[in-house]
Structures are given as structure tokens and as C-alpha cells.
Design a protein around this nucleic acid. Sequence first.
DNA 1: TGCTGGCACTCGTACGCACCGAGTGCCAGT
DNA 2: ACTGGCACTCGGTGCGTACGAGTGCCAGCA
Lengths: 338, 338
Amino acid sequence: MLSERRLEVLRAIVQDYVGTEEPVGSKALTERHQLGVSPATVRNDMAVLEDEGFIAQPHTSAGRIPTDKGYRLFVDKLAGVKPLSSPERRAIQNFLDGAVDLDDVVGRTVRLLAQLTRQVAVVQYPSLTRSTVRHVELLSLAPARLMLVLITDTGRVEQRMIDCPAPFGETSLADLRARLNSRVVGRRFADVPRLVQELPESFDSEDRGTVSTVLSTLLETLVEETEERLMIGGTSNLTRFGHDFPVMIRPVLEALEEQVVLLKLLGEATDSGMTVRIGHENAHEGLNSTSVVAVGYGSGDEAVAKLGVVGPTRMDYPGTMGAVRAVARYVGQILAES
Amino acid sequence: MLSERRLEVLRAIVQDYVGTEEPVGSKALTERHQLGVSPATVRNDMAVLEDEGFIAQPHTSAGRIPTDKGYRLFVDKLAGVKPLSSPERRAIQNFLDGAVDLDDVVGRTVRLLAQLTRQVAVVQYPSLTRSTVRHVELLSLAPARLMLVLITDTGRVEQRMIDCPAPFGETSLADLRARLNSRVVGRRFADVPRLVQELPESFDSEDRGTVSTVLSTLLETLVEETEERLMIGGTSNLTRFGHDFPVMIRPVLEALEEQVVLLKLLGEATDSGMTVRIGHENAHEGLNSTSVVAVGYGSGDEAVAKLGVVGPTRMDYPGTMGAVRAVARYVGQILAES
DNA sequence: TGCTGGCACTCGTACGCACCGAGTGCCAGT
DNA sequence: ACTGGCACTCGGTGCGTACGAGTGCCAGCA
């Protein structure tokens, strides 16, 4: 077990390194922090911390920098979540309040998060399957052409074109629409498959094919894989990555372009509470020198989606976590209101 | 006026520089191209081209690189649009055909364009005001709460929440919905304001307030400034910018994050035909060392939006223009079908 | 046992310098 | 009008040296 002072030394190293982006030496540490001991003592502590794998030397005769394991300890034991200042809180609220629709909410959230944390922001759209149905609309565009529109309580709207096997009359359409809505409105999308299961049977044989087509399109829309969308922003913050940013930036940009990777990234975050993944804890190679701070958000208690930021492992964890948490809360509020 | 051979020299310089990314000298030129003259002669031609401002030397004793003006001449007079190979065309079609909705179409287009050109792709969503109305839906969510959903012939869907000044009955709602649709379906959104102008007058005084609110929300949705959306992709291609990419990338990423800048950028492109903006021809400072190739696309003859790519001025113009044009055509087809 | 000051050592960075070679401009010759 | 020859420029590279931040270790002290 590490003594109190050694932990203090680690904390000081992390803080200084995050601030200066340069390996920090024993002398500088004692000057900038009140550790009450001499550089020599700190050096001994550093040697221990290095043995334990919490810090490392880029090369002999350089200062130390925290390892992923060091950051992990810092986040778990040494750092709190820094609450935002009240002007910041007000700014968030003002900024998010102006949104006109869900795309706008998500877009503003991404920009806000990127600006607050000065890192890359990722916001997932509210998951369909975790939302509840506000309305299902069916429109007839042509005799054998329908449009299906799903609207969730979180404001998300999905539409699909449907080519019917046979022409479908206005009355049948109104009938189907009414029955569909009466069954699913207010229910969770996850339950929809069960709720509409035997709907085709109650229709005339001539309409049954179309009804089945409509329902299967509806169910396809709810397939996890396709339903998840997200938005990212603040990529220009990658240029602040550090001196080695030219090397780092490419794999990160590439990873950020793959929705699948990002969705998995957010998916790995626990459903409630904040998740911090540091460096190599991230499964994706390209993100091995980044940290991800993610948290779920939702209009009620339950998370309907996640949001977070991607930044260098060398980041201000308390501040970032504070911003992420605060933004998630406000977004949840906005969604609940709409 | 420049002689035929001098133009040929310029073309050779552009082609070599685009390929090698290194200043090209007189000797290398005569070796790689059949100009039929000696390096010394080429040197004289180069001196003239430099006097005229078409090429420049990064420093004495280096080869020449094209200037913006040089690229301009190349694009205008020396380069054609290189058609895609038929496998490429097939790939485009296959890739775009799988799209399920407009977001998907736009998303796939962005990825496709980024991949084909290996540059940053920008695709604007079909403009509302240039599309025609397929359907207007009004849903009652609560006694005094409505949702307005606009659906265009290009598959774009916009929704807005409306808080009514007074409760609005189901019959009034159905009435308004029917009257609205009968007036605007099939018409261009740009004409909608005119078409719905005196609609409130035909309603009872108690409903008139709500009808007005609905209509003003509808009109707000059509305001140019807010209705335009776009998607970008392929930012990781920025890492291929060249040796000085660390310097260039930041302003470019910043510019790409400002929707306004991008919209202006695409807006500057002429409505029909391809527009190429080279280096300093771009109004935005951050894009002074990039070129933008943009073109309108649409389901019919008329362009409903624009798409294009942003890349280094040192790009393969014929190939890029070919890819942009081809993609725009296929997207137009897809939209027409849906 | 734990802390401290002193000291030799390491090693990455900066700097100065010479060399090389690609590329140029100019000029005289055909 | 084109060509070959030639002197010149100047950025890039490699090398050796000096510098200094930072370390590890050790002997001494509370």
C-alpha cells in the first residue's frame, strides 16, 4: 500500500503534468507544492511509484509522467468531480434552451460539450428501444406506397418508405393507423414487437400482406444495430493534443469516423454513473492514448442514451467529469420538457 | 499569351507536383514528360511562368510549385473532368442503394465521397424551400400541445413542438390538417407562405389563435438560416494534407466545424455546373490553402442542395471533379426514386 | 527508520560547422 | 529559338561538442 505522501506526490505529478504537458521532476514538484519534504525524498517516492507502475520516465534524465495506471489511481482515489461554476451552469441552460427540435438539441449539446471541455464531444441520439412511443403515423404517398413515421417521447423522429404488395385503401390505412397507435402509444419501443404481433390476423386477407410489410418495416427500424445514431464535434480540439499530435491525430480521427467504434465505446460505459476509460483501457487501438469520459442521460431516471468526450489521457479529469455530468443533466431536463 | 509548350510545361508541373508533393525541377520534368526540349529550355519557360505568377519557388535552388493562379489556369484550360471507371460507378450505385432514409442517404454519400476522393466531404441536406411538400402532419400530444411534422418529396422530415394559446379539439385539428394539406401538398415550400396566408380567417375565433401559431411555426421552419443542415465526413483525410499538415489542419478543422462557414462555402458555388474554388479564392481565411469542389444535386433538373469536397490545393482536380459529379448524379437519382 | 544534502552520471537537446547536391540563371554557341 | 556548360545558391544532413535537467545512490543525521 502506498503511503499518504506518495499518493500526494502522484497527485502533484498528475496535476503538474496535465498543466504543463512536460515531464515533471522532483525539484519542480517541491517548489510548486507544499509537500514538506526535500527533492531527494520525493525522488525516493517517485522511484517507488515507478516500480509500482504508476509513473514512468520517457527517458533517463527526464522527469516522470503518469502512466495509464497512474491516471486510473488518480481518478479513482485522488480526484473528485469538479462542479461547474454557476455562470457556466447558466450558460449551459441558456444555450440548450434555444433548441427547436431533437437534432438541434443534440447539435447544441455537442458544441457545448466540446467548448466546455475543449475536447472532442460525442453525443448519442436517444435510443429508440429505450424510449416510449409518442405516435406512429402512416401516410399514403401513392396507391401502393406508404410512409411510416415513428415519433418518440424524446422527440426523435424516424421515417421509412414502404412498398406495399397490394394497393391499400384509405379506410384500411386509417384503421391500421388507429389500431397501431392504440396498442403502442405510451409503451416502450422495446415492447412494440410483442404488442403488434397478431395485428395482421385481424385484417382482411387482401390487406394482410401490406399490414405485415408495415409491421416488419417497423420492427426493422428498431433493430439495435441500425437505430443508433450519434453526432460528434469539437474535432479541432484534437490539435491541442500535445506536441506529438501529428502522430496521434490520425488514428483518433479515423476511429471517430467509424460510428460503430464510437457506439461500442459509449456502449461500454456503465449505464448509470460516470465511466472513465483511460488509454489502453479502450478496446480500440487508435484510442490507446486517449481517455473517454462518458455518462448516460435521459429524460427520467433511466438513461436513454449516452454522451461523453474523447481527449488525451493527459486531461483535466475533475473538470471534464464535472462538465460531462452537468451537460448530461441539463440535456435530460430539456428532453423531459419537450 | 502563353505558348502551347509553356502551357504544357505548366500542366506537367501541376501533375508532377500533385503526384509527388515536392517542388519539381526542370530536369525531372524533361525526364518524366515528352516535352521534346532540353531542361534549359524548360527553365526559360519556367522563368516566364513564374513572372506571370503561375508558379513559384519555395526558396532559391528548389523546384517550382504551382500557385493558386497556376491551378486556376490548369483547371480552366488544361484539365478535363475525369470520368469514373465503370466498377467505380457500380460501387457507387450499390453503396447508395442500400439507404433506408434521408439521413442514411446523406450519411452514405458523405462516406462515399470521402472515400472516392480521399478528401473531406461535405453534403448539404436538400433545402426545404427548394423542395415540394409531400405531407404536413399535425399531432395532438396534449390538449394544448401539438407537433408539426413536415415531409418533403426528397424524404426530409422536420418536426416542431407547438404550445397552443388555447386547447384545440380533435375535429378542429383534423380540419386544419386537411385544409393545410389540400393547399400545400405538391407545391414548393417556397410558395407555402403565400398559400396559407388567409387560412386563419376561415376558422372560428376561438381556434384562430392556435391556427396562427401553427402557421407561424411552419413559416419559421422555412427560414433559410435555420433550415439548412449538412453533414461532413472524411476528416481523417486531412492527415494526408502534406508535410505541413500540422500547421494547416487546425484552421481547416475549425472552419469545418462552423456550419455557417460551410454553408456559405457551398452557397458560393454556382447553382448548376461544377464550381472549383482554389486557395485564396475562398473567402474564409482558414481555407486559404484548400480548394473546394462543389456541385448542386437534385431529384430533377433543379438543384435542391449542394455537395462537394474540401482538400489541399494540391489535389487531383480532374479525378476529384469526376467523383463529385458522379456522386451528385447518383444521389439525385436516389432522391428521385424515393 | 526515515529524511536530507551532496555528487557523479546519463542522456536528450541545442548549436555550430562542413559537406552535398538539386536546381537555378546566365551566356556563348549552333 | 534552342542547347550545353558552368558558376552559384541554399536547404538538408550528419557529426561533434557543450549544456543542463534530472536521476540514483550514499553517507550522515534526527
